[in-house]
């Protein structure tokens, strides 16, 4: 397999030809923050949290393939601020109440907020009126927490070989729609990869709740991305 060589923040990185910048960085122990990107899923490039500068132009690193000799900037003040603003906006355009959300400590959005030092909303909270769908016997869908990352849409289609989720409408009206009147009309199962793909508390298995005590949840002690960074230090 042919390889290409490029740099991320001055560090030389080798990638397989056709590999995305995000994947190549990960293999090299460099963490680029991301939300809509997920292992085993086709990249989507929608959340823009993984944006980097490639030869001076801003690109989503989850969809941009690594090119020979490319100069990639990731951990710059400008890009950190850019990513931070995206995370801030994701918080205010939904209803994210971390204090009682059962995804707390597991939530990638919350973990990113901690990593970026976000302790309070920067923008005005929009408090949209959204529904919660508890009709399904095993899984529930809380639209208040959905960040429209599309992971469930892709996982349902590509991994589960179902078509439970789709996006409808556009722009600020865009929302997640299930294939039926309610979640109970679909063939979704708790074990489906679509459920575990959700990075936030939108799509959750029922009756799990707060089974893992505070202090033992994945992001209680270790910041998101630290596992990747550790590989780079070895």
């Amino acid at each position: 397999m042919k390889t290409v060589t490029f740099t991320i923040d001055g560090k030389i990185v080798r990638a397989d030809k056709g590999q995305t910048i995000l994947k190549a960085a990960e293999a090299a122990g460099i963490y680029i923050p991301r939300l809509c990107a997920c292992k085993d899923l086709v990249p989507h490039g929608s959340c823009r949290v993984c944006s980097v500068r490639v030869n001076g132009r801003i690109q989503a690193s989850c969809v941009q393939t690594a090119a020979e000799g490319a100069i990639v900037e990731s951990e710059t003040d400008e890009l950190r601020e850019y990513r931070r603003n995206i995370i801030d906006m994701l918080f205010v355009e939904g209803n994210h109440f971390c204090m009682f959300c059962e995804k707390s400590g597991f939530c990638e959005l919350q973990a990113l907020a901690y990593r970026f030092g976000i302790t309070a909303p920067k923008y005005r909270l929009l408090y949209p009126k959204r529904d919660i769908d508890l009709s399904h016997p095993e899984v529930y869908l809380d639209h208040n927490r959905c960040i429209l990352c599309g992971r469930c849409v892709r996982a349902s289609q590509d991994l589960d070989r179902k078509n439970v989720f789709q996006f409808v409408e556009r722009g600020c009206r865009k929302r997640l729609q299930v294939n039926g009147e309610a979640l109970s009309d679909t063939d979704l199962r708790a074990a489906d990869q679509a459920v575990s793909a959700c990075p936030v508390g939108a799509l959750m298995r029922k009756r799990v709740g707060y089974a893992v005590p505070v202090g033992r949840r994945p992001y209680d002690e270790v910041p998101i991305g630290r596992d990747i960074e550790k590989k780079g230090e070895e």
Binding site: M99, F100, E102, I132, L134, Y140, K206, R207, V208, G209, Y210
Partner: peptide
């Protein structure tokens, strides 16, 4: 009202 029951002990303590 409308929230799943297992959330309630954590919500109402607020």
């Amino acid at each position: 009202l409308g929230r799943p029951y297992w959330e309630i002990p954590v919500i109402v303590q607020r």
